[in-house]
């Protein structure tokens, strides 16, 4: 595709995304890669969900010196860079075990947690415990965190993400509709 056509395609996608935007979920396309991110704002817990290519996942884990078995398994998942911010004036807590992804057939699925990954790696004799989004955290004012979230779907799959958080004793839930796994390769090269 020519550079001009690529720019036109990105512009078209951006226009469509404005129409698709729901509530305070902002959908953006990286103009360099064509990869998509979703940012849900306006709540005590702000969430940004960023598509990550399987090759990027491979590169990250390979360069940490992790065994090929681990590299292959993680990169076989649909991976998102996830950034969470406490945007409130008090503590905010989340627990990945409470989150669900909902496939187009209506099925609700739990998300594989960091603890499950770390336990599997430990069983293989690998002590690495970083890169995945922590299972649960209580963010104080100004705190934030990031990590990979792994969804057991193939590249390009679509789903709704339901995530939740707690402020004091009150629970909140939000759904980001029509999230899409990264493709096998970057849409723009």
């Amino acid at each position: 595709m020519s550079r001009c056509a690529q720019i036109c395609a990105v512009g078209l996608v951006l226009l469509c995304q404005q129409a698709l935007a729901e509530g305070l979920v902002e959908k953006q396309v990286n103009p360099d890669t064509g990869l998509v991110s979703w940012k849900a704002q306006g709540d005590a817990l702000e969430l940004e969900f960023i598509q990550v290519l399987p090759d990027y996942v491979r590169a990250v884990y390979s360069s940490r010196g992790l065994p090929g078995e681990i590299v292959d398994k993680v990169s076989g998942y649909c991976v998102f860079g996830t950034i969470l911010h406490n945007r409130s004036e008090g503590p905010v807590a989340y627990r990945v075990a409470d989150w669900r992804y909902i496939t187009p057939d209506g099925e609700r699925h739990r998300i594989r947690t960091k603890s499950e990954w770390v336990q599997e790696w430990r069983d293989m004799g690998v002590a690495f415990r970083w890169s995945m989004l922590p299972d649960d955290q209580t963010f104080e004012v100004g705190d934030w965190g990031q990590g990979f979230t792994t969804i057991d779907l193939s590249p390009g799959s679509r789903f709704d993400l339901e995530y939740s958080w707690r402020v004091n004793d009150k629970s909140f839930t939000r759904t980001i509709k029509w999230v899409e796994c990264a493709p096998d390769e970057a849409p723009l090269h």
């Binding site: 960023i50 990550v52 990027y56 590169a59 990250v60 390979s62 360069s63 940490r64 010196g65 860079g81 950034i83 990031q146």
Partner: peptide
């Protein structure tokens, strides 16, 4: 070793 991947991840987020 590792710097390219670190930069890749950096570029992502």
């Amino acid at each position: 070793a590792g710097l390219p991947a670190a930069l890749l991840l950096f570029a992502l987020s």
